[in-house]
Nucleic acid binder design. Structure first.
Length: 423
RNA sequence: GGAGAGGUGGCCGAGCGGCUGAAGGCCCUGCUCUCGAAAAGCAGUAUUCUGCCAAAAGCGGAAUCGUGGGUUCGAAUCCCACCCUCUCCGCCA
């Protein structure tokens, strides 16, 4: 969420930034309601001030045994008037809140302006796509033939877009999770977290999924609880409504969780395979930093995620999301895309973002500088490190052999009990 | 699910209609003392909104004692509802 004062004082800048995102908002209503709110507030505070002063008088008079009846009667009316004004105030505040909560973050100045994903500039390409002397198969075919993935039975159990891993498939998924967590905790200084997979409405609002994107979430029936769409949500909210000490920062957390997404509006897209599922596994990286270092932290976060692909020797590229493609809460985002030979394209496998103080303001996460008065909002960041299901798919496709078997990447073998190949 | 206890500032904890934005303590910051440190002493130290101001500083006002309502001239304090935590019982991986 943006600061109300900032929006008020920079209406045209906010409007401009909205349009580079291809988004709009009713800033006219905001302007009117905000002005009305402040006018009402002034009046209310005036009345309340009067009431406070007179109430003291009444107390004094009563103590002295004097008759305060006329003042009491007068204040009765003042209180009634305050109540009236309060109502119109909270109505205005509700409207303002709705508009403010629906405003996306303002992209950082380094974010390229663009309309959509085709305008995302390429930052770098690492590794060479493997060359096959046969037609590379898609991972769902390989997986089903090897008996390590079974989409048909999964749909029997639940429905479309749910994964069922079996045997060495389950083992590979678990190996990847451990591999990623181990690197981030022992080499990159992240603390491992295992959070709840179900969160409440406030938590979802804190990171920006609510109120705008409720349809993307799975909600528990009859409860104000939601399945998490990413570990970002519970992990960022660990410090919800807290004041951190300057010397605690930066805080780095990593967490494995399953992720649940309704994928509303993506019917017909990536219907086959592990790319787009209602449930998938992900290892997430989350950081809390001081404002002045958050962009350095974003670069190192990207590094930390890239390392996984480098160790697995998977070819990938990194792009910078342009203003038209960047997410609602983010000020800047890098996407890491892994090479998928069967489709001959790079597919997103990680998204690394700096949210600056956008989430911190919603979730009320602040810090105190040593020797300084007051508090400041922290900057929050997160990135996938990595999406496990998509990594699984990438390994199958990039390491496939002519006979349909799959070689296990060197770095992963110790996590696979020494297995070198799935066949 | 049943019974009870409780939710107060960065932390601990008092208060149970007006003198309480909140005692006392801790933490932290500055100063005194010291060669320095510790100890001790003194002082300071919540947040949000808002008015004056171009802005900052400053000064003024309002709000905030789990959340939302209510009673009252006046609520941390009384009433109602809800949320959360803890203890005991039951059930259970």
């Amino acid at each position: 969420m943006l600061e109300i004062k900032f929006v008020r004082q920079n209406l045209s800048e906010v409007e401009k930034s909205l349009s580079t995102r291809g988004d709009t908002a009713d800033l006219e209503t905001f302007k009117n309601c905000d002005a009305a709110r402040r006018k009402t507030l002034l009046e209310i505070e005036d009345l309340r001030h009067r009431r406070n002063v007179v109430s003291d008088q009444i107390a004094d008079m009563k103590k002295k045994g004097e008759d305060a009846e006329s003042l009491v009667l007068e204040m009765r009316e003042v209180s009634a008037r305050i109540k009236e004004l309060d109502k119109s105030l909270s109505e205005n505040e509700e409207i303002i809140r709705n508009i403010i909560m629906g405003l996306p973050n303002i992209p950082h100045e380094s974010v390229p302006v663009g309309k959509n994903e085709s305008d995302n500039p390429l930052l770098k390409q690492i590794g060479k796509p493997p060359e096959f002397d046969f037609e590379p198969k898609p991972h769902w075919e390989l997986g089903e033939k090897l008996g390590i993935l079974d989409f048909e039975r999964a749909s029997k159990i639940t429905g479309a877009r749910f994964p069922l891993y079996l045997g060495m498939g389950s083992r590979l998924e678990r190996a990847l999770i451990n591999f990623m967590l181990d690197i981030h905790t022992t080499e990159h200084g992240y603390k491992e977290i295992l959070p709840p997979f179900i969160v409440n409405r406030q938590t979802m609002t804190g990171t920006g999924q609510l109120p705008k994107f409720e349809e993307d979430l799975f909600k528990l029936e009859g409860l104000e609880y939601f399945l998490i769409p990413t570990a970002e949500v519970p992990v960022t909210n660990i410090h919800q409504a807290e004041v951190l000490n300057e010397d605690q920062l930066p805080i780095r957390y990593t967490a494995y969780t399953p992720c649940f997404r309704s994928e509303a509006g993506s019917y017909g897209k990536d219907t086959r395979g592990l790319i787009r599922q209602h449930q998938f596994n992900k290892v997430e990286l989350v950081k809390f930093s001081k404002p002045e270092t958050s962009y350095d932290e974003l670069e190192s976060l990207l590094d930390n995620a890239e390392i996984i692909l480098k160790r697995l020797e998977l070819p990938y590229q990194v792009i910078t999301l342009c203003t038209g493609d960047i997410g609602f809460s983010a000020a800047k985002t890098y996407d890491i895309e892994v090479w998928m030979p069967a489709q001959g394209v790079y597919r997103e496998i990680s998204s690394c973002s700096n949210f600056e103080d956008f989430q911190a303001r919603r979730a009320n996460i602040r810090f105190k500088r040593k020797g300084k008065k007051g508090t400041e909002l922290v900057h929050t960041l997160n990135g996938s490190g990595l999406a496990v299901g998509r990594t699984f798919a990438a390994i199958l496709e990039n390491y496939q052999q002519a006979d349909g078997s799959v070689i296990i990447p060197q770095a992963l073998r110790s996590y696979m009990g020494g297995v070198e190949k799935i066949s």
